[in-house]
Nucleic acid binder design. Structure first.
Length: 314
DNA sequence: CGGTTTTGACCGGCGC
DNA sequence: GCGCCGGTCAAAACCG
């Protein structure tokens, strides 16, 4: 039964997406794909979809973003959706067109992002307290005991998801990740992989799953923000120097699209979305590099971000 | 040999 | 209260 609500809301999304999408003008590219992608969800992005354009149109700085995305020479659709609330019910509203819009943009490579409103960010680590089981002699007690924190609810860290059209499941974003789990996704033949940043002080996690509608699309959901620079190996030319530090990462050093996207929700929030996660979906369909060569994703991300920023010039 | 991936089990939250 | 489900842990396997 629980599936039903989801389905409904998925449908809503679909319609909403298409509708918005068409309105946005991305229709001529390939709406169906995206719609399908959105339909598939992973609790990461559920509810409302907001169109970038809409956001950008707002009185805020969205213009910059819009310009950035729209100005991109390449053509990749970017969809953004905002998670108004963790509950599917909200979606209903979304269908209404009040809380969600889909924003479409064109980019060279990347894709989308969804973030939860900063208001609810937390460090999700509730279960992490689980005690290590000791099997000195008793093998039967496997993690019987669990750490329990009483008033502590699981906090959610800001998260954003983006969809990328790629053959590789694990997209390189410049950081090193260690896979710590894999689960089958309901209603999808493709499994979802869980990764954690290998940097010890970093609690950033990410989930990678493939769209069951479009196997060629990979949905990556980031959770949290890195508090450390990119590994020297990967950083180098690209990421490190790509972002205008003065723009979104004043004191954080080299950041990634994440930083950028993470900020988006906040901006959007100001506009008229509150407490939600945003997700932008985009496809690299036009990005031959990615499709053919499996270039490091960070390349893609870089591609997009720098573009937007560069285009920002007055 | 160290680090990463694989994989099954477990935990906690949520819906019914 | 029970069952489902997503997320995480950790031992073993794997790889460079």
């Amino acid at each position: 039964m629980s599936d039903e609500p989801r389905d409904l809301y998925y449908h809503d999304l679909f319609q909403g997406n298409q509708h918005l999408a068409s309105g946005a003008g991305m229709y001529n590219q390939k709406p169906p794909t995206i719609a399908g992608s959105s339909g598939y969800n992973s609790q990461g992005f559920d509810p409302s979809y907001v169109s970038f354009t809409e956001c950008l149109q707002g009185p805020m700085d969205y213009n910059s973003l819009a310009s950035a995305f729209g100005l991109s020479p390449s053509s990749s659709e970017v969809f953004s959706s905002v998670e108004g609330n963790p509950k599917p019910m909200e979606v209903g509203e979304l269908g209404g067109g009040t809380g969600s819009d889909i924003l479409v943009t064109q980019n060279s490579s990347i894709s989308s992002s969804s973030t939860e409103a900063g208001a609810e960010e937390d460090s999700g680590k509730s279960k992490k307290d689980r005690q290590p089981k000791e099997e000195d002699g008793g093998e039967s007690s496997k993690k019987g005991s669990k750490g329990k924190k009483k008033g502590e609810k699981k906090q959610k860290e800001p998260r954003f998801a983006f969809m990328t059209k790629s053959e590789v499941d694990h997209l390189e974003d410049g950081y090193r990740w260690r896979k710590y789990g894999q689960k089958a996704v309901k209603n999808s033949p493709y499994p979802r992989s869980y990764y954690r940043c290998t940097t010890q002080k970093c609690t950033v996690k990410k989930r990678v799953e493939r769209s069951f509608q479009d196997p060629s699309i990979v949905i990556t959901t980031y959770e949290g923000q890195h508090n450390h620079p990119l590994p020297a190996t990967l950083r180098g030319n690209a990421a490190a120097g790509m972002f205008p530090p003065s723009m979104f990462t004043p004191q954080r050093g080299p950041s990634f699209p994440q930083d950028f996207f993470v900020q988006m929700p906040q901006m959007m929030n100001s506009h008229h979305y509150q407490g939600g996660a945003n997700s932008i979906y985009s496809q690299n369909v036009n990005n031959p590099l990615h499709q053919q060569y499996q270039l490091p994703d960070y390349g893609l991300l870089q591609d997009i971000l720098p573009s937007m920023f560069l285009k920002q010039e007055p």
